[in-house]
Design a protein around this nucleic acid. Structure first.
Lengths: 136, 136
DNA sequence: TTCATTCCTTTCATTAATAAAGTAAAAAGG
DNA sequence: CCTTTTTACTTTATTAATGAAAGGAATGAA
């Protein structure tokens, strides 16, 4: 399915997705059109799901990065999920997990105050355990 | 520092970082060169840290996505961190956290067998609690 | 008021993307 | 075994985007 050249293309695009097809081709020993065709195939087959940027959260004013293990009070998760919909600005990822808890919720907050506000509202829907990221 | 146009540029690039500057300009009501200049400023100021792709892990053969809460046995973390260096192919992120445990380790595995192998080796350096992602 | 700065547009030269045609090698089928 | 098809690539030519330069309008400082 994927040969070595495809893997190298994925590596290069992971490092810099705005690279020109000509440059990408040079890196993997192909011409521009050939690299472009490979990339298009990777898109069509769903290996490449999209092109995005890495943003510095601190520069955007998000200083707190937290993982919250969520244990919903009832087996009915809808209230929790609806609550999350209203708090999208804080949510990075919400993983449904097996293990300790029902969800692992990854969030970013501008301050501890806003996080506290969020947690108090969350607590109406679910219990939680909080882990703050110190360093990545 | 960042005005509304900058925010919209970041949103557009998050959705598709390979968009042309001309197209990006159209979306935020600027000309190509103006959009390009804005983006360059965002890069120089460190708001945009890089351009990357979203890859489908399943299509790459990684079927298991796990979060592992790591509790190192000694206060000396080096053995654990050195172990991770040897297991880079599985590691997505390693967050140093305050809260429950010392680290939150995000990993991907091709199979439960390989994860089990990993966990057995990890267990020589640290205790852990495992959470498997069912759904994102 | 005057000067400098910022942020933009317009224009144009350079460069890249894309479509089309052609080639060579591998795979499929009679 | 030979023919046909398919795949993956290159080359060429057209189209489109980038990036540099010049200039204008609005803002703010001296």
């Amino acid at each position: 399915m994927l040969d070595n050249t495809d893997i190298r293309i994925l590596e290069e695009l992971s490092k810099n997705s705005r690279i020109t097809m000509k440059e990408l081709g040079k890196k993997v020993h192909l011409t521009g059109p050939a690299a472009s065709a490979r990339v298009m195939k990777l898109e069509d087959s769903g290996v490449i799901e999209g092109y995005t940027i890495k943003v510095n959260p601190v520069k955007l004013g998000y200083f707190v990065h937290a993982f919250i293990t969520v244990i919903t009070q009832s087996t009915y998760h809808q209230p929790y999920l609806l609550f999350l919909e209203t708090q999208k600005q804080y949510v990075i990822n919400n993983y449904k997990i097996s293990g300790d808890g029902c969800y692992l919720l990854e969030c970013k907050f501008p301050s501890n105050e806003e996080m506290n506000q969020f947690l108090e509202e969350l607590n109406e829907q679910a219990n939680y355990k909080l882990s703050i990221v110190i360093k990545k």
